[in-house]
Every structure is written in structure tokens, then in C-alpha cells.
Design a protein around this nucleic acid. Structure first.
Lengths: 341, 341
DNA sequence: CTGTTAGCGCGTTCAA
DNA sequence: TTGAACGCGCTAACAG
């Protein structure tokens, strides 16, 4: 039995054994209907017997295309991106395309490296889930020989097609809701402030400024991906700086979960004494005690639409520079009081 | 300006512009010290200016190797795998290798397809995070022309190197702990029962059988990835079938979180009336109210070690058929009573 | 339905 | 330090 780094079986090996030419074996694999049934079956048996696996590098080189999509996400630990990835998968799953993910760790440099790597592989299409270094990367995108779908915020100039959500407006809606519930000192808690986060912060600040309630000392970030433990820490920190805060708008539901736990531990009753609003409507949010008021972003759909654009483009449809704008929804549950009036 | 699917810039284009031969440009990229500084810089400038990106397919075909590792996980939604993936990343991050992930959706067929795809690309190494269809896949592994690291349970025959954890023993420890706390009717709650899950179930069943407390109607699964909402549903189902259950051993902490929420809603006090033990010690487990008793598995380290094996192997070290066995730890927190006696 | 010829873009090998 | 010739494994285009 062969083992380890043995020489690879090639198309030619199979062809020799079958007594046909290489192209016939190639056809059996790609256009089986063009080969007579008998011969086809005989070759398939030989392929199976020899354990032949086509070399994608050679295939990609010869045909000048590749049947995998690259999906770049800035973080693997942020559950928001998981919802997004599931959407892409769902759409791509029963096509002939495969997906490969890569993690850019919120780094523009890494993102550029990964985009280059994907381009180097003649990837059929790329989804860019991040939102950093847009200027630096748009040059790369323009030069790409494949479709690139960007997931961005509204109002951002993109080099190609894009899926956009208005994060600033979503944050405004959440902040307005907290005000409408009668909360007056609303903290903003978040992790590494990426572009999306900055836009949410803007929306939050705008509403509080209008209401004359803005205070920069209400804003707290840690430089890492959001976690539930971080939520606990941020609430303590916020309370230390401004003991009078009566609500928190969290940049992600996992933070909100931690805030709830910590508030309970501090003896603050939610929502009466302290209001919490999350972001993204993750799995656990609906079943917490009390259930979490949050902003639902169409994570899955964003992924699905991105996958759809990729596939349609790969099938030869021009998708050009369209930007698909998707909405959000404020889900009022029980971590905020009933609205006044 | 060039845009869209323009012809790709090749090594030859760069060489022509520089007035040198292709191989010199190739050397600038791979063995810069072998090209005179002046020429090197001039070529680098041209490469930059033309936006040349080497074609990995051609490179892989010519050199017969590739500098990316493939990491296959059965699920993206299971946070346990995220910890694992982070471990791999951490080890691989500042090497010259890149990582590409693929999701096998707990499907043996998909796993085989992905392994074939990776092999087709002459991937430098593969990590197999799943644990399904081992027999069917070991043939593929043996034929692989790259190192394959499997993440498995102890006692499983693997074709190559492996990282193993004794899931049955971990489940035994958890179940024994619940018994020691005085719980007598212990439900087992889980998602899609993969091989790991089956082994945990075995460990759980063994301990309860010894104690004369085993009852198949205590075991509940849903055929999907575990979620917090699933935890709520499973607890209700378990209580409907056996109203007298006084504890739950959950196959994953997110289930345990849901079980806690649901128990609170049902007015059951945790840990006095109802005990909960989780699995994996996820981020939120330490800060829940009350904090979760759980089994900590070395997810990050498993990934780190897998990445390490891959790199050492790619650097030419023989890593052969070793199996690295890693331990687990029962973390006693407050969702279980103090042990009796 | 099957085969022949040519070449994808690069790295290896050997020579200058 | 640089280059020429060749081939990696496969597919496109055209023949038969």
C-alpha cells in the first residue's frame, strides 16, 4: 500500500491505464455526457481504484478559473459574523462552488494579504466582511479579476457591489427608544471600535446631543472583540465614572448579556432601575431573563445576498456597482421599560 | 485605468518591462538576495507599479507545494470550535503559512469533498476538526500528500497524527460530580449527537448505571447545533417526560445557559432544587448568575497544538502517528450544590 | 465520440 | 549574478 508523500496520481496515469488519451479522462470528469457510457464507466472505475484527485492548481492554470469563493471576516469570535457566514453558506451550498473563509483579525494589513492570496488563486469571487482600510483596499479590488462584494455601511463609496446597513440610523433608533422609555443617562459600551462601531457611536451621540444629554464620559470601549465578560467589566467601569447612569446601549448582545448579569449582581433591577439595549439579536437574546431589547440586523440575509451576488456574477451576469441596502428592526423586549406616553 | 476582468499581469509582463528574463523577476520575489540590489529595487518598483500578483496556481503547479493550511470544522455555530480555531490561528499567525477554513456541516460527505478539494490544491497541511466517518475518511488521509492532523477522542485509531481528549471520562467526571452533590435524576441534553457527543453520553450512562439511576428517558437531543434557545426547549421536554428530574448535564454551555433561564422562569431555584453542569467553559459561563459548573476542555490548546504539528511537519520534521492527549478540568461553580459529605 | 496540439504562469535545472 | 530550456497537470481549440 502506498502511504505518505507518495507521487501523485495524474490524469495521464489514469489515461494510460485506460488506454485512452488524457483529454478523455478530463471529459469524464467535467463533461461526462460527451463520453460514451461504457468508456465513461470504465474510466470512473479506474479513477476510483487509483484514488485519482484532480490537481486544482493545474486545472485553474489551464482553465483560468477556480470554483471557490473566498469570504473574509474581521473576527471569528464575533457571533454577528457567524450569522453572516451562515447566510453565505446557505446560498452557496448547493451550487458547484465551495467557500473558504479567512480571518483578517480586524487588520487592514492582514486583509490586504488575504485578498492578494485569494486573487493569486484566481478565486471566483470574494466577500469582504470587514470595513476597515477601504481606501487602501479599493485599489486592490479594482484590479481584481473577480467579483468582490463588500459589506459596508450606507453612504460609503465602494469599488464594486456592496451590501449595506445603516448602522448610524440603527443606533439612533436604539438611543431614541431608550430616551422614550425615560432613561436619561445612557452609557455606550463596545469592543474594538471598527468603522461600523464608530458609525453607531455617531448615531448615539447625535441623538443624545439633540436631547442635551450627551457626555463623552458615558462612552466605554475595550480594545478587543466583545464578550460577555467584557460586558460585566464595562458596566462596572461606566458606573465608576458616572454612578448615575440608568441605561446602557451595547454594541453587541453578548455585551448586553454581561451587563444584565452584572446589573443583577449589583442589585439593580432591570428594566425599572436600569435599561439595557443590545445589538444584533443573537440567539440567546430572546430567552434571557428578562428578554433583551435589541436591534435586529439582517446578518443572515446580508450573507445570503452576498452569496447570491457572487453566484450570479460567476454565472456571467453583470452585477456592477450596485449597493443593496438592508434594513434593521428595533425589537422591544423586557430589558427596557414601557415607553412613556 | 484598467478595470474589471482585464488580462492579468504576469511575471513575463514585468520581465519585459524591466528588460530582464522572467526568472529574474521570480527570484526577486522568492530569493531576493540572489539578485543585485539595484536590479532588485527596480523590479520591485515595476511590480508595485503594475500591481503584479503572482499566480498561486502556476506557482503551486511548478513547485509542487502550497503555503496554506486547511482547517475543517464541522460547525461554525458551535463556539467550541471557535476556541479551537483561535488556537490554530495563534500558532500559525506569524509563520509564512496562511489558514483557510471550511465548514463541513457535520456531514461526512461534505468533509470528504473538502478534504479532496484541499488535496487538489496541494495544501501544505490539513486539520480535521470533525469526528465523523473516520473509516471512510482514513483512506483519503492515507493517500494525502500532506500532513493531516485529526482532532479526536482517545482510543480512536487514526491514520496520522492526532490531538485527543477523553470525552467519555470528562462526562463521567461531570456526572459523578452531580451525583456527589446529591442530585438523583439527571437529564442529559444535547444537540446533533456526533461522535464526541456519543462518547459523552456513554460516560454519563455508565456512571448512572453503576449508581442504579440510569433511565433512557432522561436523554434528550435535538438534531441541530446547540443553542441557548434549544436549552430552554430541551429542559421543558425533559420535564414533561420525567417531571422529577433534579439536574441536567448539558453537552455545551450555551445549552446550559438556556436551561438556567428556563429553570428560573419555571421557578426552580438553582442550585438548590435543580443542578446544572455544562461543557466547554465558554466565555459567559464564569459570569452567569449563578456562575456555571462546567467541564473545561482545552479548546485553544488543542488548536494550538494542531497548528504546531502542522508547522513542524511543513518544516520537514517527521511527526508520524503520534497522538497528543490533552486533559480536561471540572470547574465547580454555583449551578451545583456543595458536595455532600 | 475521441484525439492532437498547444499553452496556461511559474519554478527547476543546468549553463553561461 | 543572470538566463534558456523544459515541464508541472490540466484544458481549450480544433481535427477527425
Amino acid at each position: 500500500m502506498r502511504r505518505g508523500r507518495s507521487e501523485r496520481t495524474t490524469l495521464m496515469d489514469v489515461a494510460n491505464r485506460a488506454g485512452v488519451s488524457a483529454i478523455t479522462v478530463s471529459r469524464v470528469l467535467r463533461e461526462p455526457e460527451k463520453v460514451s457510457p461504457n468508456l465513461r464507466q470504465r474510466i470512473l472505475d479506474i479513477i476510483d481504484d487509483m484514488g485519482y484527485v484532480p490537481d486544482q492548481a493545474a486545472r485553474a492554470l489551464a482553465s483560468r478559473h477556480n470554483s471557490t469563493f473566498g469570504v473574509l471576516v474581521p473576527s471569528l469570535t464575533n457571533r454577528a459574523f457567524l450569522g453572516f457566514m451562515q447566510g453565505v453558506e446557505e446560498r452557496v451550498r448547493d451550487s458547484t462552488f465551495r467557500i473558504q473563509y479567512a480571518n483578517t483579525h480586524n487588520s487592514v494589513e492582514e486583509e490586504k494579504r488575504q485578498v492578494r492570496l485569494l486573487m493569486s488563486q484566481n478565486t471566483a469571487g470574494i466577500v469582504l466582511g470587514g470595513l476597515e482600510g477601504l481606501d487602501e483596499i479599493s485599489d486592490l479590488i479594482r484590479r481584481a479579476n473577480c467579483t468582490v462584494i463588500q459589506v459596508v455601511d450606507v453612504g460609503i463609496e465602494t469599488a464594486g457591489a456592496a451590501i449595506a446597513v445603516d448602522h448610524a440610523a440603527a443606533a439612533e433608533a436604539a438611543t431614541r427608544h431608550l430616551l422614550a422609555c425615560g432613561y436619561r443617562s445612557i452609557a455606550l459600551l463596545g469592543g474594538t471600535p471598527d468603522e461600523r462601531g464608530r458609525r453607531r457611536t455617531e448615531g448615539y451621540a447625535r441623538v443624545l446631543q439633540e436631547a442635551g444629554l450627551y457626555d463623552p464620559d458615558l462612552i466605554h470601549h475595550e480594545n478587543a472583540t466583545t464578550t460577555t465578560q467584557m460586558g460585566c467589566r464595562l458596566l462596572r467601569r461606566a458606573l465608576k465614572v458616572r454612578p448615575g447612569i440608568d441605561a446602557a446601549f451595547c454594541q453587541n448582545d453578548d455585551l448586553a448579556l454581561g451587563v444584565l448579569f452584572e446589573a443583577q449582581r449589583l442589585g439593580k433591577s432591570v428594566p425599572d432601575e436600569f435599561g439595557i439595549c443590545g445589538y444584533n439579536d443573537l440567539d440567546f437574546s430572546a430567552v434571557m431573563n428578562p428578554p433583551l431589547t435589541t436591534v435586529r440586523t439582517p446578518l443572515f440575509e446580508m450573507g445570503y445576498r452576498a452569496g447570491d451576488l457572487l453566484i450570479r456574477s460567476a454565472e456571467g451576469n453583470a452585477i456592477e456597482r450596485q449597493t443593496i441596502k438592508l434594513g434593521f428592526e428595533l425589537i422591544e423586549r423586557r430589558t427596557t421599560r414601557k415607553r412613556e406616553g
